[in-house]
Design a protein around this nucleic acid. Structure first.
Lengths: 217, 217
DNA sequence: ACATCGCATGTAACATGCTACTTATGTCCA
DNA sequence: TGGACATAAGTAGCATGTTACATGCGATGT
């Protein structure tokens, strides 16, 4: 279901029914409904009694809040990793970063985003907090809905890769301050871009700044 | 269902079945199962195929991770509130703190914890991040399972109230540093106490320290 | 022309039927 | 007495039946 939303097979705002979906997937209504209820629990879809359900797009404020949470969780995480310099953790991160670099070079978009996600998860898990990793994973799912409905090609893979590099380098160097700053830059850039995307096509620089300042800081 | 777990009507670790529960609640299995699936999504219960389901108690590490997340989210939140000094927000917080004080004085345990929860939520919402508030609310639900199964009377209401007071005072005074420190003290104390509780009756001071250091910092 | 009402349609939510599988229990044989 | 084995009970998971309700459309009356 998540996949279907991500690939754009299902459109946000449109009314769907469990009947339709069950038929389409060739299973009964129960598992479909159960899956949708779980998604609803996470806020990705909303049921309307006796009418159907919709995929709910995160609004700009949602996006800003999500990045507020991510900053709060991921900055301390990189700090801790840089502090501890656990070889096993660093090796994993290095390996993942290399895969990402390769995916960016070869233009493998799907692979790149998978590695991106994995890198952030490795950082959070490596910092010792698996629950934080799970939370961020779920937040990313929500944001991804947005990416599916807009074009989302505002940055090249190379550019995004370039933002990650200083994070990994600071981690390897064991410099908590630099790691935090690099991660802050990366998340801020990404977050502001996505908020702008959620605000629509027009230029809303002022609205963006207001929202970002109010929610994130 | 949450309520039932909290009040101790259902015991963690015990095997239950959707059949039993449906009969007990005098509804059909569907809504029971759907509700349980939602709880399972949040990690509060675990299904075992063809056997039943259990209420899962958070283990000590879970508790530590939860407080790691709470610290990450709530420290910036108090900082922001102290920085901005929004009169409306401060008034709400003040009001809530007063209610808490009164509940502590009169020994109204249920009311006290409700106010406690509300205070933390007000702080997070007031900082501009409703999603962070929702996340922390969900984490509190998980921790509460632990409180229901153990006695959890290690601190008096007065003591807990005393920990909150400096937070509120620093917020009113508009001192971000003091507010952060007060909140850090409060959450650290609470978290370590609950981790100790989750570790069991015996004295595990060393294990507690190790776990706390590894997960929280 | 216009407002009102009834009805057909489609839905979520709930109830119940069905199946494959896990586990415990008792039974029969060595 | 001990151990393999059939057996029965109980379960999650999936399929299907049922109910109450929201909505849109069209007929009917004004």
């Amino acid at each position: 279901m998540r996949e279907g939303v991500r690939t754009g097979a299902y459109l946000p705002g449109e009314l769907y029914s469990v009947y339709q979906l069950a038929e389409q997937l060739e299973v009964s209504r129960s598992p479909v409904r159960e899956a949708l209820l779980r998604l609803a629990e996470a806020g990705l879809v909303a049921f309307e009694r006796n009418r159907g359900f919709r995929i709910v797009l995160p609004d700009p404020r949602d996006i800003a809040e999500i990045f507020g949470v991510r900053l709060a969780l991921e900055l301390p995480a990189v700090r801790r990793i840089a502090d501890r310099r656990d070889p096993a953790v660093l090796a994993e991160i290095d390996h993942c970063a290399a895969a990402m670099r390769e995916a960016a070079r070869s233009g493998d978009r799907a692979g790149f985003f998978r590695d991106d996600q994995r890198l952030h998860e490795l950082i959070l898990r490596g910092s010792g907090n698996a629950r934080a990793a799970a939370i961020v994973g779920s937040l990313r799912d929500t944001v991804r809905l947005l990416g599916a409905s807009t074009a989302g090609r505002s940055r090249t893979l190379q550019e995004i890769e370039t933002e990650h590099r200083p994070v990994v380098e600071a981690l390897r160097a064991g410099d908590p301050g630099a790691a935090e700053q690099a991660m802050r830059d990366h998340l801020t850039r990404t977050g502001r871009l996505l908020v702008a995307q959620a605000l629509g096509d027009a230029d809303h620089t002022d609205a963006l700044d207001r929202l970002w300042t109010e929610v994130v800081g």
